Computed example of a mutant assay.
Amino acid sequence: MSGWRTHTGKAVALPLASVDTDQLIPARFMSRPRDAGYGDYLLHDLRHDGDGKSKPDFPLNRPEAQGASILVARRNFGGGSSREAAVYALADAGFRVVVAPSFGDIFAGNAVNNGLLPARMSPEDGDALLAALGAGPQEATADLHARTVTLGGITAQFTLDDAQVEKLVNGWDDIDVTRQHAEAIAAHRAALAADRPWLWPRQD
């Protein structure tokens, strides 16, 4: 997974609260192989009517929203079940940034591990970005080091801890972070083996 420091792309508004992981990727689509992609199923049941027809007035279905990579939503984005496929659906649909006042904790962790920024900001700043997008999608830039999202004349701060920034910048997941301490782990293992040899199986 490649890392990034800044991302500039089309921002689109999704002015809904409590969009949970079941809505982001309905369970019936999760049997699809990961390498086949989940992007087509992102928010499927919100984007389609009961007959499976696309709703033309849904924000992500509008022609001007095509190619968007920054999503601005309301509070409690990604709550619900722990399915990582919710993040896969967003990433496969081309999104690199989701802006919201709050996120489900597990969703936010999964997002960072997959290169997707969960940009948590104040409800007031989130509302300002949504208002700016009221006339339609427009270009925005997310900066990891500055922890800002800039859209039009608005620059809004988001919160993200240093460890999560490091993971996004370097394209790391939790396993990659552990590998950065390989020498210390090996040294500790060697010292433990010397001090407590009875912990290790006999080499007969």
Rank of each mutant, 00 (worst) to 15 (best):
F29G: 09
T8H: 03
P15Y: 06
G104L: 08
Q138F: 01
R75M: 02
E64L: 01
V72I: 13
G78M: 00
P26A: 13
R83H: 07
V12Y: 00
N61W: 11
L16W: 14
V165K: 10
I175P: 01
M121G: 01
L24K: 00
A36W: 07
L14D: 00
K10H: 08
G109Y: 05
A36M: 11
G79E: 01
I106S: 12
T159C: 05
L14M: 01
R202I: 05
D174N: 11
L144T: 02
F103K: 08
R196S: 15
D161Y: 05
H7Q: 01
T148V: 04
K55T: 06
N114H: 15
A184V: 12
H48E: 10
M121F: 00
E139Y: 02
G134I: 07
A65D: 08
D127A: 15
G109N: 13
D143P: 02
K167D: 02
I106W: 10
A193R: 12
A142Y: 02
A89I: 08
L43E: 11
A135H: 08
S54R: 15
F58H: 15
L117T: 02
A131I: 09
F77T: 03
Y88G: 00
L116E: 04
K55G: 03
A86H: 06
A65K: 07
H44T: 08
H181I: 03
A187T: 14
E139C: 01
A65M: 10
W172D: 14
V99A: 11
P59N: 09
A111V: 08
R62F: 03
Q203A: 13
G3V: 09
K55H: 09
R47Y: 14
G136M: 05
I185F: 13
V72E: 04
R196K: 15
Q180G: 12
E124I: 14
N76V: 11
N76Q: 15
P56N: 04
I70W: 03
F58N: 03
L144D: 09
V165A: 06
M30P: 02
R5A: 12
Q180C: 13
R28I: 11
E166K: 15
L129G: 04
S54Y: 10
A119F: 06
L151R: 09
G52C: 07
T148E: 10
N114V: 01
R62P: 07
A187G: 10
R74I: 03
A85F: 04
V165Q: 07
I70K: 01
P26C: 09
A132M: 10
I154A: 09
T155N: 02
D174R: 13
N114Q: 10
T141D: 01
N110C: 14
P26F: 06
R189H: 11
G94K: 06
L42K: 04
G153A: 11
A182M: 11
S69D: 08
R62D: 13
L71I: 07
R5K: 14
I154K: 09
A17M: 06
R5H: 12
Y88I: 00
V12F: 00
D57K: 06
W172N: 06
L42G: 02
A186D: 14
D35R: 14
R147I: 07
V112M: 00
A182P: 04
Q138Y: 01
A73C: 11
V149C: 05
G109V: 01
T150N: 05
